[in-house]
Amino acid sequence: MRCPFCSDENTRVIDSRPADDGSSIRRRRQCDECSKRFTTYEKVEAIPLVVIKKDNNREPYDRSKIEAGVFRSCHKRPISVDQMKALVDEVETAIFNMEEKEIKSSVIGEILMDKLKDLDAVAYVRFASVYREFKDVNTFMDELKKILDTKK
């Protein structure tokens, strides 16, 4: 493992333990050259996943796209970065637990919306308005009514 501070290749593991979520190993390392410490995470390499887009094009799964959508929808909301990362982790776990080689983007979107609905109603509506491509105010209001009806 290359040191992120001095780029030396001689580093050693000084502590190893399961990460909080249990799906990875957290390792504390120390560089033999500069003596600085840093943390790495080791995960099992997952099956390559292909996402089928609305236009039937296929592209490799990219976690950063889900993160970007979540961060945009949670912008200026009282939601911590840790909560957003946990939500993305939950969505990703749900996707990979399906054990499919290909998954439709609509399935990912629905899973994400279900998780966002539980986290923050405003973030949910923001995401839904882009994801479901609301064409006018009436479709937007219909979605808001659904949320209000479930809260009663």
Rank of each mutant, 00 (worst) to 15 (best):
M1V: 04
P4K: 01
P4E: 01
F5T: 02
C6G: 01
C6Y: 01
C6I: 00
S7K: 15
D8V: 01
E9W: 00
N10F: 02
T11Q: 01
S16I: 12
S16P: 09
R17C: 02
P18E: 12
P18M: 06
D20E: 15
D21E: 15
D21K: 14
G22S: 03
S24A: 15
S24K: 12
R26S: 09
R27L: 11
R29H: 08
Q30Y: 00
C31L: 11
D32G: 13
C34P: 05
S35L: 13
K36F: 06
R37A: 07
T39I: 14
T39K: 07
T40G: 06
T40K: 11
Y41M: 05
Y41W: 08
E42P: 03
V44H: 02
V44M: 10
E45I: 14
I47Y: 01
P48T: 03
V50L: 05
I52Y: 07
N56G: 00
E59M: 03
P60N: 04
P60C: 00
D62T: 08
D62A: 11
R63Y: 03
S64W: 00
K65L: 04
I66H: 05
E67Y: 03
R72M: 08
R72S: 12
R72H: 10
H75Y: 14
K76W: 07
P78G: 08
I79P: 11
V81F: 11
V81Y: 12
D82H: 10
Q83A: 14
Q83V: 03
M84V: 10
E90C: 05
E90H: 08
V91T: 04
T93N: 09
F96R: 01
M98P: 00
M98N: 02
E99R: 07
E99N: 09
E99L: 02
K101I: 04
E102K: 07
E110K: 14
E110Q: 14
I111T: 13
L112Y: 06
M113K: 08
M113C: 06
D114Q: 15
K115F: 05
L116K: 13
L116S: 09
L116W: 13
K117R: 15
D118F: 08
D120V: 10
D120Q: 08
D120N: 15
A121P: 00
V122P: 06
Y124S: 05
V125S: 02
V125Y: 02
V125L: 15
F127S: 04
F127Y: 14
S129W: 13
Y131W: 12
E133G: 04
F134C: 10
K135F: 01
D136R: 14
V137H: 12
T139Y: 07
F140H: 11
M141I: 15
D142Y: 09
D142I: 04
D142N: 15
K145L: 08
K145I: 13
K145Y: 08
K146Q: 13
I147G: 07
D149I: 09
